[in-house]
């Protein structure tokens, strides 16, 4: 099976990843992808850089389980998740979720489901550099609410 989860410091290429996701699968009729990037503002402060920490081992296992769950819930062909760690700059890509399916609805839904799940259940932590100094990003209750729409109760922020 093709690699589904990568945790890496290196950047990634959306085109190459989507091509690999579709390769050799004539049943694919739709691909949906999401990329999260580093914003230059957060909670009213300018952000100049970011550092991402994770829990090696648990991170990969948690995301593999999320992809298994996406396959149970949605009629999708394949999914790919890449999440970067380490130092990042404004504008850098942080995360990629890409999903292929026969028809568009399933890949749209599975892509959003995977991102909502990842935001509250995967062990990553962001530290922002601002003019006031470096600070750990606070979790958002809105992210727990986003996962609740899928019938999963998260108690990450709240």
């Amino acid at each position: 099976m093709a690699q589904r989860v990568s945790i890496q410091t290196a950047d990634f290429d959306l085109g190459a990843e989507v091509a690999a996701l579709r390769a050799g699968d004539g049943g694919v009729g739709a691909v949906c992808s999401f990329i999260g990037t580093v914003r230059d503002r957060s909670d009213g402060s300018a952000v100049s850089a970011m550092e991402l920490e994770h829990y090696p081992g648990m991170t990969e296992a948690a995301i593999e389980a999320m992809i298994d769950e996406a396959h149970r819930r949605f009629d999708i062909r394949a999914a790919r998740v890449i999440h970067r760690v380490g130092p990042l700059n404004v504008g850098d890509q942080i995360v990629l979720v890409a999903v292929s399916s026969a028809h568009r609805g399933e890949s749209f839904q599975a892509c959003e489901f995977l991102m909502d799940y990842l935001k509250t259940q995967a062990p990553f932590w962001k530290k922002e550099t601002t003019p006031e100094g470096a600070r750990w990003v606070d979790a958002r209750v809105a992210d727990d609410a986003a996962l609740a729409r899928w019938g999963i109760q998260a108690r990450n922020a709240g």
Partner: peptide, 10 residues
């Protein structure tokens, strides 16, 4: 056993 603050990836 690991302890950590709420997660903030993505």
């Amino acid at each position: 056993l690991a302890f950590f603050p709420p997660v903030t990836g993505g």
